[in-house]
């Protein structure tokens, strides 16, 4: 009985991790060349930006909010950095910190609207989404290619690993963020306050936790993550364009949910989110290896998983409610 109970919170996480390895195994059996470290690493290289933004999203979801502006913020960061680098000839050393600061402040502004004016997060970040996407077009309607040598260097540099494997610098950044996020959420007062507020904001207030400050900072942190994802994305694309990262917010939310973070707040796993992204990666790779299926199968598969996990979470919650009312 104890064991059964132990698993329910982690059930999504466990299913996700098992599913990831199962899918990888299926690919390895079916396709030649699938089973290699580099295939796995390529998933990371191609999805580094998604990992980064999905982690920011995880924080927001744990605190019981949502942020649908992240895709647009990524596009804005790409566009603005391209503009500043190419048109204004600013140094990357100025542009990168500037972008990170901008993302943070953008998030803080959204968080402030949500907390102080008590407006639904969905609506506030909807406005933020329009704003960021619109500002891209104010800068330019066309694609701006990035030719800055520093960006070029980072984009093309491959960090060699043993056995002829390699990763990109973006992967290193993503993993650094994963570690930082794990530390933040498990070993700091701020991190635990996020869980407490997401679990029960009223109680958290009565327990004397700084609810407002934490909430605003979480949105700020998410803004920072999207800006970082934007920079990584601009390494990946080497261009700024208004249509970049279209709909990425939904991928980020889906990754978090599949990784065991429900949209009801109070629960969430950074590791889970990482695997949520990787599951999408492995599905993409499978479809690529299969060759005849087109890429939209990824979306359907992801949505199917999403649906499965949401219903699963709902069942867990209602079972909890029922046992509570009986006891």
């Amino acid at each position: 009985m104890q064991r059964m109970q132990l698993s329910y919170k982690y059930i999504n996480l466990i299913i996700t991790i098992v599913l990831f390895f199962a899918l990888f195994a299926v690919g390895s059996v079916l396709y030649n060349g699938f089973f290699s470290t580099q295939v796995l690493l390529n998933m990371l290289i191609d999805n580094a930006f998604l990992i980064i933004t999905a982690i920011g999203m995880t924080f927001v979801l744990i605190i019981g909010g949502i942020d649908i502006s992240v895709g647009s913020v990524i596009a804005l960061v790409c566009m603005l950095s391209a503009y500043l680098l190419e048109m204004q000839h600013l140094s990357a050393m100025i542009v990168i910190p500037g972008m990170l600061l901008m993302g943070f402040l953008f998030g803080v502004a959204q968080g402030s609207f949500i907390h102080f004016f008590n407006i639904q997060p969905f609506i506030v970040t909807l406005a933020g989404m329009f704003l960021a996407r619109g500002l891209c077009y104010v800068i330019s309607i066309d694609t701006i290619m990035i030719t800055d040598p520093f960006y070029q260097f980072i984009a093309t540099y491959r960090i060699p690993l043993p056995f002829d494997n390699f990763i990109s610098i973006s992967v290193v950044i993503a993993f650094a963020l994963v570690l930082a996020a794990l530390y933040l959420i498990n070993y700091t007062k701020f991190g635990r306050a996020i869980y407490a507020i997401g679990g029960n904001a009223q109680s958290a207030m009565l327990m004397g936790l700084p609810v407002g400050r934490t909430k605003v900072l979480v949105y700020g942190l998410n803004g920072f993550c999207s800006a970082l994802a934007g920079i990584v994305f601009s390494f990946y694309m080497l261009s700024g364009y208004g249509l970049h990262a279209m709909g990425l917010e939904m991928d980020a939310i889906a990754s978090a949910v599949i990784g065991g973070t429900p949209l009801t707040g109070g629960v969430g796993f950074v590791t889970g989110t990482l695997f949520g992204v990787l599951i999408q990666g492995v599905i993409q790779t499978l479809i690529m290896f299969q060759g005849t299926l087109s890429s939209w199968w990824t979306k359907i598969a992801v949505a199917f998983l999403l649906c499965l996990f949401i219903v699963l979470q709902r069942i867990v919650v209602s079972r909890k409610e029922r046992t509570k009312s009986i006891s």
Binding site: F113, F117, I119, I123, V124, L126, A127, G128, M129, F130, L131, R133, G134, L135, C136, Y137, V138, I141, G242
Partner: peptide
């Protein structure tokens, strides 16, 4: 595409 900026301002005003 600037409509998006206008829309965002409108959304913010309505919400406030």
């Amino acid at each position: 595409e600037i409509t998006l900026v206008v829309k965002s301002v409108v959304v913010i005003i309505i919400c406030l």
